[in-house]
Amino acid sequence: MTVAVGLFGYAVAMAFLAPRVLPRLTRHGVHPNLGVAAWLSVMTSVLGSWGTAVLIAVADAAHTWLHADRLVLSGLHEAEVIVTGHEGLAAQLALLLVTAVPAVLAVILFGRLARSQVRMRLRAREHADALRLTGTRMHRHSYADVVLLDSAERAAYCVAGSPNVVVVTSGAVAALRRRELAAVLAHEHAHLMRRHPLLLTVTRGLAATFARVSLFPVGAREVARLLEMSADDIAVRRHGREPLLSGLLALSGVAPAGALAASGADVLARAERLVSPRTRLRRIRAALLTGIGVAVLAPLLVVGAASGLLLCLI
Rank of each mutant, 00 (worst) to 15 (best):
V218I: 14
V54A: 12
V36L: 06
L17W: 12
L40K: 00
E222S: 14
R225G: 13
L89P: 06
W50H: 11
I82C: 06
V104P: 05
A61F: 15
R125I: 07
L297R: 04
A298K: 09
S41R: 01
E80V: 04
G85P: 05
G35V: 02
T209E: 00
W39M: 06
A4S: 14
L76D: 15
W50T: 14
A156R: 03
G264V: 02
F216I: 01
H31L: 03
L200M: 14
G291N: 09
R270C: 01
V42C: 09
A235P: 12
P19K: 10
S41V: 06
L7D: 07
R121I: 10
A174P: 00
R237P: 00
D150A: 14
V98Q: 08
P256L: 04
S276E: 13
A306E: 06
L288Q: 08
S116T: 12
R221S: 11
A255T: 02
R280A: 15
R70E: 07
H28F: 10
L300S: 07
I234V: 13
P197M: 03
A295Y: 00
S142T: 10
L97V: 12
R282M: 09
R123V: 07
V275Y: 08
F8A: 15
I314P: 05
R212H: 14
L181N: 03
P256N: 11
F16D: 10
D129H: 13
T134Q: 15
V21G: 01
G75A: 06
L244E: 09
T134L: 10
G247T: 07
S151N: 11
A128S: 12
I56F: 01
L17P: 01
A271R: 06
L288Y: 06
A208G: 15
T99C: 14
L249Y: 02
I82Y: 00
V294H: 05
V159D: 06
R221Y: 01
A257P: 05
M138F: 13
M1K: 09
A18W: 08
A224S: 13
T44C: 13
A259M: 09
M1I: 12
L313D: 14
R237N: 07
A172D: 04
S170R: 08
A224F: 03
S151H: 05
A11V: 04
A155S: 14
S45R: 00
L215E: 03
R121W: 05
V168M: 13
R132W: 02
V267M: 07
R119A: 15
V267D: 04
S230V: 03
A190C: 11
R178V: 10
T279A: 13
Q117W: 14
L47V: 07
V236L: 08
R280W: 13
A190P: 09
M120G: 03
D145W: 02
Y157E: 05
I292A: 02
L47F: 02
A130C: 04
V101I: 15
R194D: 12
P32H: 04
S246R: 14
P256S: 08
G205D: 02
H31I: 02
H28R: 09
I82Q: 05
A250N: 03
L113F: 15
G85S: 05
A208I: 04
A305Y: 10
V104L: 15
G253H: 03
A18F: 08
T201Y: 01
V236P: 09
R204Y: 06
